[in-house]
Write a protein that binds this DNA or RNA. Sequence first.
DNA 1: CTTGAAGCTCTAGTTGCTAGAGCATGTATC
DNA 2: GATACATGCTCTAGCAACTAGAGCTTCAAG
Lengths: 140, 140
Amino acid sequence: MLTIGKLSQAAGVKVPTIRYYEQIGLLPEADRSSGNQRLYGQKTLERLCFVRHARDLGFPLDAIRELLRLADQPDMPCASADEIARRQLIAVKERIQRLQALQTELQRMVAQCAHGTISDCRVIDVLGNHDLCLHADHGH
Amino acid sequence: MLTIGKLSQAAGVKVPTIRYYEQIGLLPEADRSSGNQRLYGQKTLERLCFVRHARDLGFPLDAIRELLRLADQPDMPCASADEIARRQLIAVKERIQRLQALQTELQRMVAQCAHGTISDCRVIDVLGNHDLCLHADHGH
DNA sequence: CTTGAAGCTCTAGTTGCTAGAGCATGTATC
DNA sequence: GATACATGCTCTAGCAACTAGAGCTTCAAG
C-alpha cells in the first residue's frame, strides 16, 4: 500500500493534484489508515499514470473521465475511445497551425526592430496597427 | 465619442472584456456621460486595438501592460519591447515543439487502433502504458 | 520522547475572461 | 408623453486545472 506521497512520486503527479482529482471524482475515494491517511494500491497507481499521460497529451479532464470509463469496460467496442483521440488530434493540429502563424508574425516583428527608440519600434508599431500584419485574421 | 458597445464593435473586443480591462487597470477609467455610461475617444480605441492584437498574438496581459507602458514613452530605447516580443516568440516556439510531439503520438495511437473492443484498443493501451510512447518525456 | 517530515481539511488565489441577476438609461416609435 | 426594447450599469459567481497557504494531526527515526 502506498501513501499519497509515494503515489505522488511513483506517478509523477503532485500531492495536492491527487487530492484534487479525488475531489472532482476522477479518482475514487481512497481507503484510509487508522490515522485517516489515504492509502493506495497498484490499481490506483495505474489509473493515475493513465490520467497523467492523458494530461500530458493535452486531453481535458472531461475527456479523461470518459476514457477511464471506457477503459473499465474492456468488451465494449473502442469506437468512442478512438473518437475522443481523434478529436484531441484535430484540436492539437489546429493549435499548431495557429501558433505557427503567430510565430511568423512575431519573427517578422522582432527581425524588423532596428533597436532605436520606441517611436521607431516595429514591435510596438505592428501591435498598434493591425494593417501591418501579414495575416489580418489571426484573431479568435 | 463612443459608447462601450460601439467601442466593442470597433475593436472586436466584447463589452464585458472591456470593463474587465478597465477593472484590472489595463485601460484607464473611462469618462462618464450624465447618466453614468462610459464614453470613449479615439485614443482608447487605438489602445484597445493594441491590446487585442497583442492578445491575439498570445501575449499575456502582464506583458501587454508593459508594452503599453513602453508605447507611452516614444523616446525611450526599444530594447525592452524587443525583449518582450522575443520572449513571447520563444514561448510560442516551445509550445509548437511540444504540440508537434503530441501530434505524432496521437497520430500513432489513432492509426494503430484496429476498431475492435476496448481491450484491444491502442488508444487506451498507450495511455495506460507509457512505455509504448515514442517519447517517454512529453511530460512537464 | 522528541523532532521534523509528511499527512489532513479548508479556504482562497491564479489567468483571462464569461454569464447572470437585478437594476438604470437611452432611443425609436406611436 | 407613453411605451417598448436595446443597451448600459454594478456586483457576484463560475470556468479549467490546478497551486498556495493556514493551522492542525499523524507517522517514522534517532
